[in-house]
Computed example of a mutant assay.
Amino acid sequence: MITHPQTAPVPLPDPDEERRRIQTARLLAYRDDGPLVALLRGRLGPGLPPVPTGLATLLAVAAIGASGVLSAGRGPIMLLPVLVMVLLMVPTAPRDHLGRFDWLVPPLIRGTEFLTIIVLGLAADMPKWLLYVLIYVVGYHTYDTVYRTRQSIWPAPWVFQAGLGWEVRLLLLGVGAALGVLTWVVAVMSVYLGVLFAIESITSWVGLDKQSALAQASDDLEASPEDALEQATGEAEKA
């Protein structure tokens, strides 16, 4: 009597646990954290509640911009809005982002990042069109990330590190503003990030199209002659 080896059944993942895992992964990707957060995340304990902290940070940066304390346009004071955001929002990274309103965290981070860029740029009296270019580049990266994850296509982790993350980008801008060279920092950052995000995005989408085409070709080759004839006949009738 010939017996076939019995294979142990593969346990199916818990649907609720899988949903939570995907939700956390998406929101962490939308945060666009960079190398500094990656370095500190495991050392910050449970972290701060992200939504209240994000709202407080947004209001604090707005208050700094409206107060006129950055009117000098250069000097260490220009680091104030950047340090407020970094010191408050970096400790929110360890959270699982599964709270009822935690979907607000990425737009709060992105909105506060853009507000900080605008506040620094206006205080330093730099060309406004250049501010728009940097905001557009970061916004394009955010849109591309959101759209891809909704298609279950995840950007490579190195993209977030090479893209510096919101925290390193703001620290570089703050230092540039303090030294009076913000225009040059914004220009270099815009070119670097624009090239990086554009090339990575185009390469990923082209690679996906090639994989889809190869999969379609494989399906066509595996189809039986009867299926192929039926498909051809159906397409001819439609025509």
Rank of each mutant, 00 (worst) to 15 (best):
A123D: 00
F160T: 05
E222F: 14
V185A: 06
Y136E: 01
A156V: 15
R100Q: 02
G99H: 08
I135V: 10
P107R: 13
I199L: 13
R100H: 07
A198N: 05
T142M: 12
G99L: 11
L229G: 12
G180N: 11
G139R: 08
T116F: 09
I135C: 09
S224L: 12
A123R: 00
G111S: 09
Y192M: 13
S212A: 12
T112C: 04
E167D: 10
D220Q: 02
L196N: 04
Y140E: 03
W103V: 15
I199Q: 08
Y147S: 02
L130F: 08
M126K: 03
E226W: 02
I117Y: 12
Y192H: 10
S212Y: 14
L104Y: 06
G165R: 09
G194K: 09
E226D: 10
V137S: 00
L108Q: 05
D102S: 13
W166I: 09
L164W: 05
I117P: 15
G176Q: 08
E200Q: 15
L229H: 03
L122N: 07
E230G: 12
T149C: 08
T203N: 11
L171Q: 06
A217I: 01
K210M: 06
V186D: 01
R169H: 09
M189H: 10
V119K: 03
L208S: 04
E230V: 10
A123K: 00
L196F: 01
I202C: 14
L193G: 10
V168K: 09
A178C: 09
L134V: 15
